[in-house]
Design a protein around this nucleic acid. Sequence first.
DNA 1: CGAGCCCTTGAATCCTGTCAAATGCAGTGG
DNA 2: CCACTGCATTTGACAGGATTCAAGGGCTCG
Lengths: 241, 241
Amino acid sequence: MDDLSQYLRQQASFKRNTAEELTFIKALKLRDVHLAAGKMIIEEGVTPTQLYTLMDGWAFRHQTLKNGNRQILNFLFPGDIIGLQQNLLDISNNNVQALTPVTLCELNRQQLWQLYEKHPALAYDITWLCAQEEKIVDDNLVNVGARNGLERVAMLLLHLYKRYKAIYPIPGKTIPFPLTQQEIADALGLSLAHTNKTLRKLEKLGLHSIDNNALTIYDEHMLASLADYYSTPIKPRPLLC
Amino acid sequence: MDDLSQYLRQQASFKRNTAEELTFIKALKLRDVHLAAGKMIIEEGVTPTQLYTLMDGWAFRHQTLKNGNRQILNFLFPGDIIGLQQNLLDISNNNVQALTPVTLCELNRQQLWQLYEKHPALAYDITWLCAQEEKIVDDNLVNVGARNGLERVAMLLLHLYKRYKAIYPIPGKTIPFPLTQQEIADALGLSLAHTNKTLRKLEKLGLHSIDNNALTIYDEHMLASLADYYSTPIKPRPLLC
DNA sequence: CGAGCCCTTGAATCCTGTCAAATGCAGTGG
DNA sequence: CCACTGCATTTGACAGGATTCAAGGGCTCG
C-alpha cells in the first residue's frame, strides 16, 4: 500500500479492512495513474471504461446536452470510486474529468467478478459506495430542483466544505477550492453571471470568501440555515485501493 | 413464485435466474404487501427501513425542504428495489410513496448479508440495481439543471412512457398515467401553474395528450428531439422476488 | 349538493438568463 | 521587459421565462 492509501485509511472517515481483504485489494490494483488538472478520466462514448479509485485531488462527473448546457452531476473526492456505473450498466453517457491534478488507483476490472465471489464483504462495500454516490446525486437534485439561487450556492459551498473536512480534518475554516464560477454554475443549473452575483451577495453578507483557490467559511451556521442544510452523519466508508 | 413475479420474469426486459438462485430469492421473500394509492412505503425518520421490490403499480421517492418545496427524486416501476439506500447507508431522509395501488414484495433484510456471502451473482445484481437507480437520478438531475420548462416536460413524458413500455410491451401509443400535475411539477422543479401551461402548449402542438389518467404519445420523434432525448438501451434487469 | 381535489387561465411580479463590456491576472513570446 | 493573448471574474442593462396570486370550472365522493 502506498502513502496515499495509508493516509486515507488512518482517517476516521474510512473503514478498517482485514489483512486478508487488504491483500486482495492490493492484488486488484493495477497501477497508479497521474493526470493533470482538466484531463478526462472517463470520456463519453469510449469503451471499455476503466475502474478507478480517486486517491488524491478533486474530480467531477458531468454531461452536456445539445443545447450546450453542461450539468455537473457530482464532485468526486479521495476514496470515491470512478467508473462503476459505466462498468456495471455498460453505458458511458457521461464524462469524468480531473478538476485538480489527480492520482488514481486503477483497479483490475476483470477481477470485479472474482471480488464478488471471494470477498462478499468487499462486494458489499462496492454496493455501499454506489448507494453513497446516489445519495450525493439525490442531494444535488434536491438542491437544483427545490432551492433558489442563493440557497443553492450556500448549500454547495457548505457541502464541499464538509466533505473536504471529513477527509482532511485540518483545523481552521479554510479549504482549497479549485472550482471556477463556471463549474459552480453548471453544478447548480444557474448561469455564470447569476452565479457570480450570488457569490458576491453571500460574500458581502460575510458568510464566506473565495481567494486564491481557497474557500473560507466565516459563518457556517448562517449558511446552513440559509440552505436548510441537513447534516448527514457519514459513517466510515470503505476504500478500494 | 406468484403471478406478478412470473409475469415480470417472462418479459424481455428482465433477466433469467438459475433454479438455485430462484430458490434463495423465494426464501428471501417475507410476504406480499398491498398498499393503497398515496400511502407511504418508507417514511422519513422511521427506522429500521424495510426492503422491498415493487411488483405492481407506480411509486415515487421524494424529499421536502423547510421552504415547502418538494422534490421528487425518481419514479419507481415494477422491478425496482425500495429501501436499499436507506438500509445500506443507515439513513432515511427521504420518503417513498405509492402513486397508484401497489403490490410490494417484502424481503428479509436480515438475510441481505447471507445473500452477499452465498450468492455473489445476486449481490452483483443488487449493485446493478443500485447503479441503475443512480443513472435515473442522474438523468433527472440533467433534466432539471440543464433544460428549460418545455424540454423538461417533454423529457419526463417520454421517459415514463419508455420505462412503462419496457415492462409492459403493449401495442399502441397510450399508457396509464397516474401523475397529477403537482407531481410533475415537483419532479421537474417547476411551479404548478407553469407546468400546466407547458403541458397545454405541448398538447396544442399535437405531441401528446393526457386524459382519464392515460398518456398518449402522438409524436415520439418530435418530443425526443425537443428534449434532446438520448435513448439508453436497457439491458435485461435482475428481479429480486 | 356541498366539499375537496385537480385542472385551467390571466395578470403582475421577480428571479434568472442573455448580452455586452471592462477588469485583473497568468502565461507567452517577441 | 513588456505587449499580447486567453481565461476567469465582475457588473450593468435588458429581456424573458418562471413564480406568485387569484379566481373559475370540472370532477368525484360522501
